[in-house]
Write a protein that binds this DNA or RNA. Structure first.
Length: 535
RNA sequence: GCUGCAUUCGUCUAGUGGUCCAGGACAUCAGAUUCUCAGUCUGAGGAUCGAGGGUUCGAAUCCCUCAUGCAGUACCA
């Protein structure tokens, strides 16, 4: 008995500590970053990467950091950084730390960290893991061509070739010093080991094997005085104490380089874990989703709209402007490449945070399915109260919303919401509540308007005139009774009537329409139709 | 070319050696809902698990080979 009691108290204590760690305490060990470059708008693949980073961080009570990687000043696009921040905000992916959020590890914009990189590049130079290279672009090109011509080999600046190039390994110390003192350009390259077998772990793919012989001496520092992505990335991740690097699969080939850099710096023990996310593919054909695919195939690739050219003539549409709910957008994106292992498909952000796991992220790229995206939005639209849909719909009512009071507008929304994927589409479904038809669908007229229909409709007007009080129930009983007593065909009458009121054979229940547009308008529309569609 | 990664219904995916002649969702089609369209409900079709070899009593699941696709191969990220 006592033993059992002790046993349980130990278990409980352990569980309690674990519980506290997971749910209450800020876990300082888990720090992830989303690090886009401000070269244009963030596309949905980028948003998904940000989302997975965010979910992972939140689940472990860790920190989600936003860092801007702008080491290539030539590709800088004004407004892109603001766009990224605003997109994430719209999605509900809010950074805990970084650009716009602040923090103790700043600055979070790489161009503002230039001095830091210089210092670390020097460290690599001093330890013999890097060297100066002086070859011009032309010389490199010549080397490439010569090698291809003579030996059918593709040139790589690597262990096999570096000693026949112009660099601090082949030049005397004086020559190097002289060059560095002059204004002549130079770069700093990483000295990749000649032949080392690497086994690296990826959280999604497991072990990845590479031999350093296949890798080249990547430029770490450019002649313009800025580091390349590779250097900046490693230095920043180390300094910012990043625990997990979660990024797109396009980075997988440079993972060995990054690991080698950690080793060269002597940071191997605190190296982050890597997770390379599969790519998002275009819906038709193969290849990764690109910025022009969306509007070519009729769906947005960007969270927010963005002008594709400087003249703002070609504008790429955005999810926000297409009336997607950010929650639906996030839900759809989360399921593209990850699955919960259950059959649940609708997840709130909190549910995603609770359920997400890297182990359940797939390995192969996913084709984006615009149809499924629409379906997700519909699920969220249907969850909205009618009043909310109504509020969202008003901008799409072409200024005609004043025709009805709020309560009626809400009723209209409730009546038609099930046939909507987006609030934006509402006019198509409600226009006849606001405007009398001016034309009548030809096919429908041909099918539903026979000889004598006009007179039947005129008789119906008399019936409607006498309905009092004028409401759905009264309309229903009176008109049905009239049809029965005159031995008319129900379908014929209703379809003709619908043609008068709507102009085509569509829309909600006929009595709902009659009720909302009112007695006078109903009568007026029947009169007009009976005159215009004359047989 | 080289290097790496991937490969289950049209699409997203479940599946970790027997319960899988492969389950769900989107899309498609049919029936029902006796005014229409839409929706909803019910149902159907749809995957020789990329191909071929092994291992095993037994493989979508493990191993090998090939094919295909994708990514990277920049002083871009």
């Amino acid at each position: 008995m006592i033993i059992a009691k002790n046993f349980f108290s130990i278990i409980n204590l352990k569980t309690l500590i674990y519980f506290c760690k997971i749910f209450f305490m800020k876990n300082d060990n888990i720090r992830v970053r989303f690090a886009p470059s401000p070269t244009g708008p963030l596309h949905i693949g980028g948003v998904r990467t940000a989302l997975y980073n965010y979910l992972f961080a939140k689940q472990h009570n860790g920190t989600f950091i936003l860092r801007i990687e702008d080491t290539d000043r030539t590709r800088f696009v004004p407004g892109a950084q603001e766009y990224i921040i605003e997109s994430l905000r719209w999605c509900g992916i809010i950074p805990d730390e970084g650009v716009s959020a602040g923090g103790d590890f700043g600055p979070y914009i790489q161009s503002e960290r230039k001095d830091i990189y210089t210092q670390y590049a020097q460290q690599l130079l001093d330890s013999g893991n890097a060297y100066y290279a002086f070859d011009t672009a032309d010389e490199l090109e010549q080397m490439r061509e010569a090698l291809l011509k003579d030996k059918h080999e593709t040139f790589q600046y690597d262990a096999a070739h570096r000693l026949s190039m112009k660099n601090s390994l082949t030049m005397t110390a004086e020559e190097v010093e002289q060059w560095l003192k002059s204004d002549k350009p130079y770069v700093i390259r990483f000295k990749m080991p000649a032949n080392e077998q690497l086994t690296i772990n990826d959280m999604i793919r497991g072990e990845v094997h590479v031999n350093t012989a296949t890798l080249d001496d990547k430029v770490l520092f450019k002649s313009d005085g800025m580091p390349t992505y590779h250097l900046a990335n490693i230095v920043d991740d180390h300094l910012m104490k990043i625990s997990h690097v979660i990024r797109g699969e396009e980075w997988l080939p440079s993972m060995p380089l990054h690991v080698m850099l950690y080793k060269a710096f002597g940071w191997e023990s605190s190296m982050p874990e890597f997770a390379h996310l599969p790519l998002l593919l275009k819906p038709d054909g193969n290849g990764k989703l690109s910025k022009r695919d969306g509007d070519r195939l009729g769906f947005p690739v960007f969270p927010l709209r963005w002008p594709l050219d400087v003249n703002k003539e070609e504008i790429a549409s955005g999810y926000r402007e297409s009336c997607y709910y950010p929650e639906a957008f996030i839900n759809m994106l989360a399921l593209l490449g990850w699955n919960p292992g259950s059959e649940q498909e609708i997840f709130s952000m909190q549910e995603l945070i609770n359920t997400f796991s890297m182990e359940r992220v797939g390995k192969s790229g996913s084709k984006f399915d615009p149809e499924k995206a629409k379906w997700f939005n519909k699920q969220y639209l249907l969850k909205q109260p009618d009043a909310e849909i109504c509020k969202e719909a008003i901008p799409y009512l072409h200024g005609k919303e004043n025709l009805y009071d709020t309560k009626t507008l809400e009723k209209i929304c409730g009546l038609i919401k099930e046939r909507l994927h987006f609030v934006k589409e509402i006019w198509e479904q409600v226009h006849f509540f606001f405007e009398a038809p001016t034309t009548y669908d030809e096919k429908a007229v041909h099918k539903r308007w026979k000889e004598g229909t006009s007179s039947t409709m005129n008789n119906l007007i008399e019936v409607i005139k006498n309905i009092e009080p004028y409401n759905i129930n009264e309309c229903d009983t009176t008109i049905n009774a009239w049809i029965t007593s005159n031995e008319l065909n129900l379908g014929t009458v209703f379809n003709s009537l619908r043609l008068c009121l709507v102009g085509e054979l569509k829309g909600p229940h006929i009595f709902d329409i009659m009720d909302i547009i009112g007695k006078e308008e109903t009568i007026r529309r029947i009169e007009t139709a009976a005159k215009i569609i004359n047989y």
